[in-house]
Design a protein around this nucleic acid. Sequence first.
DNA 1: CTTTACGCCTGACGGC
DNA 2: TGCCGTCAGGCGTAAA
Length: 271
Amino acid sequence: MPELPEVETTVRGIRPLVEGKRVREVVVRERRLRWPVTHGINRILSGKRILCVHRRAKYILIKFSHGTLMIHLGMSGQLLVVPKNVAPAKHDHVDIVLVGSKVLRFRDPRRFGSVLWVRGDPQVSPLLSKLGPEPFDEAFTGNLLFEVARGRRLAIKNLIMDGRIVVGVGNIYASEALFRAGIHPARAAGRVGLRRYQHLVQAIREVLADAIAAGGTSLRDYAGVTGEPGYFECSLKVYGRAGEPCVNCGGIIQHKVIGQRASYYCAHCQH
DNA sequence: CTTTACGCCTGACGGC
DNA sequence: TGCCGTCAGGCGTAAA
């Protein structure tokens, strides 16, 4: 399930392979994704040059002179760069065929992802305009979390997963960051002090940076640009480890559904 | 305004 | 072996 580190890994992987390349054609085999693939995408992109590839939150932004292709990997999406002679598989929904020998291929079995064309500045598009800061942006601080949490009773785990507060903290890394920060995931956000929020910001950055450095977590669906799985999975300290001993204290890792999401924590280490 | 629930979708998994 | 029910999970949207 792609989270920010997986998306960042994908961006870094495809960037040197597609930047500066011109699009030959776009082949859409299945347009029923999260939203329908933008109509006429072949006419929009054919003959145009990819200027650069960026990430904003979990969106992959492929910039052209006349607009931006916004790709979201959803739950099970992958963006691969493959030789043209590699036949599309069952869930390979969109091929961006490049001039030369390669194809930028969007694969997504569960079709929670999206492939959308945005004219002009993508930052003002509805999907991006309300997003909070990137976790590595200096605007993301313990003070920001503390202020925005004041008086709020929702679980802190839900707060840090709210893209309007900070982007890119998905379910896996929310549990991992809270474990590192020693904060119980169900604790009311308004009942966490400034110092602990500062520690949490640090923990979020650490866990994301570690995962990016490791090439992204691989649980079920993630694979790198050429198909190899990532390998951060073994670094997860609490996620998916219910019933196993805590790496810190040896206590049993707990599982609890918080805000409709599976959450993992050590009741002894996290308060 | 805040908070909660839902739905989209397929593959994996467990029970029988 | 195969069929079926259940569930995960990002995240926009609707509802409370």
